[in-house]
Amino acid sequence: MTNPFLSSEEYDERAHALYNEARYDEALELLREGLTRYPQAVELHVGAGYARLAREEYAWARRSFEEALMHDPEHEDALAGLGEVLLKFGQVEAGLRAYDRTIELGYEDDVDLMLQIGRALFREGFVEHSLTFFERAVRNAEDSAEAVACIGYAQHRLGNDVEAMVALRRALVLDPKFAEARVYIANLLYDAGDLDAALLEFEQTTPEDHWDELGIWRLIELKKSVYKLKDSDGELKPWEARLVELAGEPDPIDELLAEVEQAAVEADTEDGHPSQDQLEALGSLLTGLVGQQQAGESPGEQGSGQANEPGAATTDVLMADNGTHRVIMRDGSAFEGSWEEIVQALRDARDAGRPLDEYMAMEARRFYGATGMRVASHAPEAFLRGSADAGMLRIVR
C-alpha cells in the first residue's frame, strides 16, 4: 500500500522504527517504496543497505551503500556500512579504508559510530583494529560502561585476560547493572578455575540477562554442585525456562538428520555391519535432505556461509563397529561393552534409575557448561563420540 503524503524523512523514520524491531522485510519494503518517490534520498539508500545487511544480502547491501555515497561521498553511516560489506567480501584493505575515512572526516567523536565500526571489525575477526575504535569511543565517552566493556571483550580475544578483567571491572563500576559485562566476567572466572568467584558473579544476574546458553549451563551446574540441588529443584526452573527460550524451535532439517543418524546406528545387520542397500538408502536420504534445504534458501542465505555439513557426522556413524568398545574416563575408570552398554554403565555409576535419554541429555548439558562444546544426546554412540571430542573421555576402541 502506497503512502502518497509521506516525506523522505518520514519514510526513513518509519523504516528505522521497523528495523529496530528486527522487522527487516517490512522496513525494506517501505524503503523501496520511498526510493521510488525520492530516488536521490541518501538516508533511504543507507537504510536499505542496513536492512539488506541484516538479511545477509551482502551484494545488494553494497549496491545500496555505494548508491548513497554517489550522492554524498562523506556520509559516515554509508561509509561504515560499506566497510562492513567489503570485509565480508574479503576486501579487507578497501573495508579498512572506508572505516579510516570516517576518522579523516572528523567523526572520531561520534561514540555510537566508533562502537558500530569496532563491533563489525570484532565480528569479522579483526580484533586489533576493533580495539583502536573502541579506544576512540572511550576517549570521547570515558563514562560509557558499554564502550569500556568493549575494550575488555577485545583484550580477552587477544589473550590479555588481565587487561580484559580490569576493563570489565571498570565497566561495572560505571554501571553496576551492566549485566553483559558481569556475565562475561563470570565466564572468565569460570575458565580460570575460580568457580566460587564465578558463581558469585553469576548469582548477581537474572535469566533475562543471558543471551547465550553457556553461562546459564555453567550457573546451573555450579548451583547444583555447591548447594547440592536436585535436577527438579524449583530454584533452577527459571534458568531452564530461559534455556528453552534461547534454544527456540528446533530446525526441521536438523531433527530429520538426527533421526537419520539414529537410524544408521540401528540399521546394522546381524553380522554387525550395515548392508549395502541400507548404506545407499541412507546416503540417498541425506543427499535429498541437503538438496531440499539448499533449494529452499534465498540468495542471501546461500551467501551466509553457514550451510550444514551432515555428511561427515553421518559417515562416522555408518562406519561404526557395533562390537565391543572401551572408553576411559578422565578419572581413569574404564568401561567396556556396546555403545549402549557403556552409556548404561556410566548412567548407573552416576544416576541409576534415570532413563537413558534423560541421562545423556543431562550430561550433554553439563559438558556444554564445562567446555562450551555441544555433545549429541540422541544416540549412545553419538553421545560417546561427542563426549570424546569435548575431552570428557577417551575412546580406546
Score class of each variant (00 low, 15 high):
361 A>E: 12
228 K>L: 08
211 W>T: 11
250 P>M: 01
289 L>A: 01
347 R>N: 05
354 R>E: 15
92 V>N: 02
86 L>V: 10
310 P>Y: 03
177 K>N: 13
215 G>N: 10
123 R>D: 14
330 R>L: 10
246 L>S: 07
273 H>W: 10
257 L>D: 04
174 L>Q: 04
133 F>P: 09
256 L>A: 13
262 Q>I: 14
205 T>R: 03
175 D>K: 04
383 F>D: 05
25 D>Y: 13
252 P>V: 04
224 K>S: 02
258 A>R: 08
397 R>N: 15
199 L>A: 08
327 V>P: 01
8 S>Y: 08
38 Y>S: 04
167 A>V: 04
106 G>T: 01
4 P>D: 00
30 L>C: 02
245 E>C: 08
30 L>E: 13
73 P>I: 10
38 Y>E: 06
395 I>Q: 00
100 D>Q: 09
288 G>T: 05
163 E>P: 08
126 F>V: 15
194 D>T: 11
254 D>W: 13
57 E>Y: 02
315 T>D: 07
105 L>P: 04
138 V>Y: 02
275 S>V: 05
152 G>P: 02
146 E>G: 05
310 P>H: 01
380 P>T: 00
85 V>M: 01
370 A>H: 07
39 P>Y: 08
256 L>F: 08
96 L>W: 09
165 M>C: 10
39 P>V: 14
55 R>C: 01
346 L>Q: 02
196 D>K: 12
193 G>C: 03
113 L>M: 06
67 E>P: 02
